[in-house]
Design a protein around this nucleic acid. Structure first.
Lengths: 152, 152
DNA sequence: TTCCGTGCAAACCATTTGCATAAGC
DNA sequence: GCTTATGCAAATGGTTTGCACGGAA
């Protein structure tokens, strides 16, 4: 369920193949066939703690790790993972979409001049007195984005 | 649509001068030459209370009102207004950028299936216990987006 | 074998840019 | 007149789609 943030060997599966099995079942549980590409991307995404990646960045990372995937497949995979609840799309005003490997309740810093997203644990921000949702609507989620800029 | 709209609390509504003069000075004060196109777009934006528009929607609205502007000029104008503090860009995950005529402190509902943005007064949401900004950074703004979906 | 997933390239859509013309001052 | 805006069309950048091939069940 949760992934250790301290992987000593982050490139290859452990000797008994347990990480590969973990990822396989994670995908299978989500209704996704554990194909080579999906497993490789899942490994890149989930073996380094919480991350915020764009499709393009993940694609380059994959190529750098000798994982041969097309950009289209990276997009498809990111969306499939998101639909399956394995990832979460983060809304910032930049034109790119960022995918967050942390799907638990939390918020974000957005560093304006670097276009970078950083997690803020839900416990560190208190949001209260939410307004009522209009008739027939319900609150799906509350996102808090704390925009940071360089101090002048 | 008309110049004779009711403004309950709008202090910029003119007492003796025309609205055109108001908009002219508003633009001038922002360091922008009050050209025909900018005045027309400002009129569309600011004569109907608070709005959230996309560039394309504003362009169509302008054409419908017999205001002849190109889409490129609409984009340029929206960004100039935003840089000048007359508008605010709203970040939602939709691929489009929305511009908000309300530049005061407030938050947003985002209606997921309609891709629509609605203001929430700052007074209706309480955000506290914000985390420290990292070294050398400061908090530029805190955006709260309450995502709404149709109740099932 | 039957599908589903993948790769590729072309398509798409929102947005930006370069450059010649037109408008403010 | 000198400068700044505008319009157009072409370029861009992120993302998506259609279709033929290849791999998983």
């Amino acid at each position: 369920m949760t992934f250790s943030q301290n992987f000593k060997d982050d490139r290859s599966a452990s000797a008994d193949g347990s990480e590969a099995l973990d990822l396989s079942s994670k995908l299978r549980d989500a209704g996704l066939r554990p194909t080579k590409q999906r497993l490789s991307l899942a490994h890149l995404l989930y073996s380094q703690g919480n991350r915020h990646v764009s499709a393009e960045a993940l694609h380059e990372e994959a190529l750098g790790a000798k994982v041969d995937v097309s950009l289209a497949t990276v997009y498809n995979t990111l969306h499939q993972f998101t639909d399956a609840g394995l990832l979460r799309a983060v809304a910032v005003e930049s034109s790119k979409t960022y995918f967050d490997t942390n799907t638990t309740d939390h918020h974000h810093f957005f560093i304006e001049n670097e276009n970078r997203v950083v997690d803020v644990p839900a416990s560190q921000i208190n949001v209260s007195d939410l307004p009522e949702a209009p008739e027939g609507m319900e609150i799906a989620r509350v996102d808090v984005i704390v925009r940071l800029r360089k101090k002048t």
